[in-house]
Design a protein around this nucleic acid. Structure first.
Lengths: 230, 230, 230, 230
DNA sequence: CATGAATGAGCGTTCATTCAT
DNA sequence: TATGAATGAACGCTCATTCAT
């Protein structure tokens, strides 16, 4: 008979709650190991792709037992979820702030500032976790496997918010009224591809120039008149 | 070996040649079944992703035995190769024609025409085989599995030729001398993403407008001054 | 990649190390099961030949799951390797000792002793693991499959060392200077065939008499003058 | 419904009888193709071992259809049977002749002659079909697969007759009364191993010297007094 | 609690044999 | 009659997940 911690969770399969007091030594150890698994998985996902990485590979590389893995994560999908959660929160936050700033902004300058702030925040997130971004870009168009779901959700989040921001910008006269779905998707596609090559190292570019190009893509998008003159 | 006879024999066991006369009933049947397998696989790849689709799934769906599969294709990788070969040839052809036309073109008009022709040819290829394009876009950033190789090669082909064309266009004064790698990647990224959403059906757009947008992306790229004025 | 992930990962997935303490229950159990698999495989190999025995057969006979098999061995070839390693070591050892003893031996008596010791050691090895010897003899001329490699290496080891020993014995005047390759191969061939029939049970011989015959083959080989007087 | 030749065979699975008149063009063609299959198979068996050679490989190499193969042979086992039949007949014949000659021989010289004749006949058979002999030696200790049965039977034939001949020779005083089973097996083992290495080409020996050694093995065996003086 | 041994369905691939054409 | 397409049971091997210790 398997001993079960009296826990607040009614879900029998969830990872057990931390055992010791919050912040205690056990809790800390738990977090360290979990982090180690996340980092190891990130490296392997980057190198071999998410589907090709077996849990055995992760735990062996991390020097942690497989049993432990399942006490930290429900499975691969959960690990990926945990892996991308912070990024997702940061992006959600950046989008929310941008939207509210834009709605409150009075002049064109304030609108630009809102974009600028958002772009900066996101760029920082990206550069802080380049491997994660690389994995995201590589996997975000893949088939909706269980493990890929968090990534697809992140992709949807980005797509949806980029669209909304574009629409706001158009309403506010910042961008010309070109079809917002098309222009937002084009901008996202362009950025992702550039980042992809940059982060893979295909591309030994001066980050500054690349950043400039990316920011200009975000800020000005495909607003030029030329774009619509087919 | 891979189950695989651990033998030194390099016998390739290539798909057998037709037995009957070249246009005979058997030959025709063979082609029909091969086509059936390709079509079935395409549908499954589209829905579930290439890696997730087992040979069993393909042959069951097609109502063909597993053994037969291996008389039509050498394996999964070969099937994918056969699947994408025509597309690849069409793209290679379009790129070659565009490059030679551009090198021979005298005026700006002729240059535009070359682009236009290429874009039209490619658009036709894409719209003729939407599922293939969808699979391509979904898989083209995945890890280099054996089966994925033809797709990655196609991706490289596109990337490389887009770069060369951009450079030619810049030399010929058609595009402003912005970094060709950045602008070609951005254009490809934008196009692929738009096609992706369009072909998935996320996006119920008038094909005409989308085509116009895509062609304008190809033709004018990110040439606007605004783009570089960060 | 036989079924085999077509991946660049070279992760070896070696049999896991014991988890508990070195002499603990788990460690012991591990060894017992590994031994069980080896013994079961030996029995099946003996009866049906190495190639004809499927992993399924081994694990079913042993009452162990297929997955477990691969935690004990890397594959069929590895199992065979592990199976024959001790024998190989014993033979290597016996050959080395014989060679060094013979090189140091002063009189003919000492030379004979060296042979005698080697023959005795080998005879003990053979009689301790009759099934292994039987498998070795049955397979040692087979095609070089992956799984058969350890056996072919053992065969080469024996052939090579028998030749060297014969040459030493000739140099030392123990054997007449007949072509060493021919006489060593003839001796090996004779011994193997005798052992083969004896171990199969075709042959209900007094082991003592057989042993005497074998030792005399080793010791005196084909040294008689008659042998070369065609 | 499969058309069945009215044939004398009551076995429904046997290869059909030749269609045209005996010796007619069809019959000749049949024999040529059958011979081609046999030759091709021999080459492949020699290179890769009998078990590893698939019927596909044989028919592809021979440029004959698989369907035809099964009209010439019942299967792999039957092919092997047909392949070794002539050799078997030659050996049976040589043994029979030797036995009757020896039983009728009056002096020691006549006995020697009988041996000599037999050895010569067999040597000719061996040198006429070296690949067959190589296959025989490589496979004759393998597990009794269906396809290997004719080879094992040939091996038994040789073993049994060698024993009988040895016993006759001992009775007639030609060989010393050492255990006939042991000495006959030792001789066979020695010969087979020497032939094996010679035919593989491991061994670039003057055939004349090798033949001399082989004949002396056959003729004088292990008759020396030394052999039994353990 | 941590550990890794156990499980077994699943994968890509092979092959002897049958049979429609 | 000759052909090779079709079949499907095997094979060697993998892996996410469970659970006894």
């Amino acid at each position: 008979m398997s001993r079960k911690k009296g826990s607040t969770s009614s879900h029998p399969r969830l990872p057990r709650q931390r055992p010791g007091p919050l912040g205690g030594k056990r809790d800390e150890n738990r977090k360290l190991k979990q982090q180690l698994l996340l980092t190891t998985a990130t490296g392997l996902f980057k190198k071999n792709g998410m589907e090709a990485v077996a849990i055995d590979e992760i735990v062996d590389s991390a020097g942690i037992s497989k049993g432990s893995f399942y006490s930290y994560f429900e499975g691969k999908a959960d690990l990926v979820n945990v892996l991308f959660s912070p990024l997702r929160l940061q992006f959600e936050d950046a989008f929310q702030k941008a939207k509210s700033q834009m709605n409150q902004a009075q002049g064109e300058l304030a609108l630009f500032d809102a974009y600028q702030n958002m772009a900066t925040a996101m760029a920082q997130s990206c550069l802080a976790e380049p491997d994660l971004i690389l994995i995201y870009i590589a996997e975000s168009r893949g088939a909706p496997t269980g493990a890929r779901q968090p990534i697809l959700e992140l992709s949807d989040l980005i797509t949806q918010n980029a669209l909304e921001l574009t629409e706001i910008a158009q309403k506010r006269g910042l961008l010309r009224p070109f079809d917002a779905r098309i222009s937002s998707l084009a901008v996202i596609g362009a950025i992702e591809r550039l980042l992809f090559e940059y982060l893979r190292g295909t591309f030994e570019y001066h980050p500054i120039e690349l950043t400039a190009a990316l920011i200009s893509l975000v800020l000005e998008g495909l607003q030029s008149e030329d774009f619509v003159t087919s």
